[in-house]
């Protein structure tokens, strides 16, 4: 049951907010941006909560909905206990499912939401995710002001929050999806997340194509999550060598957010990287009709890495049709 087909699920609307560095990057079309990492709040964590609330408030307002009209909210973020989403949601009276798949959280949210809509258990569902560079750095790496040494393979957690309103009508159809398995090929380098996630992305794509009996040329674009520049190279070679799939129309979200002169090493990461690029670049440009998004997550825990465990990666694929 790895792959699912949907007939009646659409992304009706979306809203994205991005951080100060993202604002000066490659994409200039975000709905809202932050001038600084505090966003008028006292702590970075509060700023991330406010970003999520801005997204939900705008989704409700733009579609003339009340929070009571939303049947379900599915969301998650990078912090321990998915704290940001949990503390955000208490403001609204919306039934809530909290999820975590690291940077694959948004695709996971889309898949779960789609099941509720397809089975007619819900009419309006919001899927949300967020990440904040400084809250993530603090938790997963070193203190913010420490300025730890960055490697060529390091990625930079992007700041922002993206939400999608899913319903039974809209312009972006969620056509099918494949739920990935966690794959661990022995990587333990926390500064090279691309290498952790690349095999999972390749595995999920091959499973998706096999289950739905499709060739990779069926898609106008395959948008992978946050593999980054080096992870993308590993991914493409792995996909070709192991699964004999030659992927020509590929874009990686990690390489599409920041500019080279922003010194971001291998590119952007974080659960918002993929939806930021998807909604504000790929769909905004109206160039592609059939899009396969493959959100990749590195399921690492600093504690287990310290205990000499290798890191599992995961990837979920969602097929979108833009009308």
């Amino acid at each position: 049951m790895a792959s699912l087909k949907f007939n009646n699920v659409y992304i009706k609307d979306f809203y994205s907010i991005a951080g100060p560095l993202e604002k000066d990057g490659q994409i200039r079309k975000f709905d809202a941006t932050l001038d600084d990492y505090y966003f008028g709040e006292k702590t970075f964590e509060q700023a991330e909560i406010k970003m999520q609330q801005t997204v939900i408030d705008n989704l409700l307002f733009n579609n003339s909905l009340n929070s009571t009209d939303i049947d379900l909210l599915v969301g998650g973020d990078l912090l321990n206990q998915i704290a940001i989403t949990n503390y955000n949601i208490k403001k609204y009276k919306i039934p809530f499912l909290g999820i975590y798949n690291a940077c694959a959280t948004f695709a996971e949210g889309l898949i779960i939401s789609s099941l509720f809509l397809e089975n007619k258990n819900a009419q309006n569902v919001i899927t949300i995710t967020s990440s904040h560079n400084l809250t993530a750095e603090k938790q997963f790496r070193y203190p913010v002001e420490y300025g730890s040494v960055k490697y060529a393979t390091s990625t930079f957690t992007s700041t922002g929050s993206v939400g999608g309103l899913l319903a039974n009508s809209g312009k972006i159809k969620i056509e099918s999806a494949t739920i990935g398995c966690a794959i661990d090929l022995g990587c333990s380098d926390v500064n090279n997340m691309g290498a952790v996630m690349a095999p999972a992305a390749a595995d999920t794509i091959s499973k998706h194509l096999k289950d739905l009996n499709r060739d990779i040329s069926y898609y106008d674009l395959v948008l992978t999550g946050d593999l980054g520049s080096i992870g993308s190279k590993i991914f493409l070679e792995y996909l070709e060598r192991v699964y004999k799939i030659k992927l020509k129309k590929h874009m990686d979200s990690g390489c599409e957010i920041f500019l080279e002169n922003q010194n971001i090493n291998a590119g952007a990461s974080g659960p918002v990287a993929l939806p930021l690029v998807l909604f504000n670049k790929v769909i905004h440009n109206r160039k592609y009709k059939k899009i396969l998004i493959v959100a990749t997550g590195s399921l690492h825990s600093p504690q287990l890495v310290n205990q000499k465990n290798t890191i599992p990666g995961i990837a979920h694929a969602v097929s979108l049709e833009v009308q």
Binding site: A152, G186, P199, I230, E237, Y238, R241
Partner: peptide, 19 residues
């Protein structure tokens, strides 16, 4: 799927060397 040793080689090939 690749075995771990083979994958390690593939990763190493793409990671730039530190000066």
């Amino acid at each position: 799927m690749m075995n771990k040793e083979e994958y390690k080689k593939l990763v190493k090939k793409h990671v730039p060397k530190k000066n």
